[in-house]
């Protein structure tokens, strides 16, 4: 009956009504279907992002655990291979037979034992300094970095210099240590892989931002290389830098200088973030 009415040539109203209704219905259903499919697409995209984020977190966590283990192994090796034999030798000098020996030999043995114990103290001090540099603890990041660069320059193999332009107020001690470790890791990488003849570090601030820039003239990496290495299973040191900076909500950029002669690494931190972190702690 509906179709009879609709196909009647005189019934224009019917035609408009039926086609209008069908058109509106089609539009409505189309819109609903679009919303549902769009939602599914968004869900899939978000899940993929989440998985990528989790993978990245996993990589960083693994890198940090491996690094911790390596550090422990190094300390264990230092203690076992250096401190252990030294103390054992000192013990040999100070055995029970010492009382039966003549006075000169006794004095000689005590002197030798004292020498060995002094060496052991120095060794333990060195291990302790490698864990927490005393300059950093007592005098801050600027002094610790200057000290590190002076030592590198002193070796004669490379010209290393640093300059802090605006560091009147020290950062939190824990954050200074994190930044120092990042700088150490970067310098270590430059020494190991870049074949550079100089490293220059500058520090400055701009508004609420705190910058540390490292220039060197050796072989370096760009941001793309850094991202690739971060996603792969190699580049443990770089992952460690990334995870350390994540704690400070900091950023790191690797680039080639405008003149294409130098490589530049920029560490960017926000001072406010640093204050927030200290408040949370």
């Amino acid at each position: 009956m509906i179709f009879l009415e609709a196909t009647n040539p005189g019934s224009n109203v019917s035609l408009v009504l039926y086609f209008g209704t069908i058109g509106m219905l089609a539009l409505t259903i189309g819109l609903i279907v679009f919303i549902i499919f769009h939602q599914r697409k968004v869900i899939r995209y978000q899940m993929r992002l989440q998985r990528m984020e989790q993978d990245q977190q996993k990589l960083l966590l693994n890198a940090s655990i491996r690094l911790q283990e390596e550090e422990r192994q190094r300390i264990a090796a230092d203690l076992h291979d250096d401190a252990g034999p030294l103390l054992a030798t000192a013990r040999l000098y100070l055995n029970e037979n010492l009382v039966n020996l003549d006075k000169t030999t006794q004095l000689q043995s005590i002197y030798n034992a004292k020498q060995i114990i002094d060496d052991t103290i120095q060794l333990i001090r060195n291990i302790s300094h490698s864990l927490m540099p005393p300059t950093l603890k007592n005098f801050g990041l600027e002094s610790a970095v200057n000290d590190l660069f002076q030592k590198i320059s002193g070796s004669g193999s490379m010209n290393a210099s640093s300059r802090f332009h605006d560091y009147r107020e020290r950062l939190q001690a824990e954050n200074e240590l994190i930044i120092f470790r990042v700088i150490q890791e970067l310098v270590n990488n430059i020494l190991k892989h870049s074949n550079a003849s100089f490293i220059h570090l500058t520090q400055n601030t701009s508004g609420e931002k705190f910058f540390i820039r490292l220039h060197h003239d050796g072989r370096g990496i760009t941001q793309n290389d850094f991202n690739k290495l971060n996603k792969s299973n190699v580049g443990l040191g770089l992952k460690n830098i990334q995870s350390r900076l994540k704690v400070l909500h900091g950023k790191i950029f690797f680039e080639k200088d405008m003149s294409q002669t130098y490589y530049k690494v920029t560490i960017e931190l926000i001072k406010d973030e640093e204050d927030k972190l200290s408040e949370q702690e």
């Binding site: 109203v13 408009v16 009504l17 209008g20 209704t21 509106m24 219905l25 259903i29 609903i32």
Partner: peptide
């Protein structure tokens, strides 16, 4: 969805219902 489908399908009907 119920409201949307119902009113979009009956819009033309209501437009001409007075006639």
């Amino acid at each position: 969805i119920a409201i949307f489908v119902y009113f979009s399908s009956t819009l033309f009907l209501f437009l001409f219902a007075a006639d």
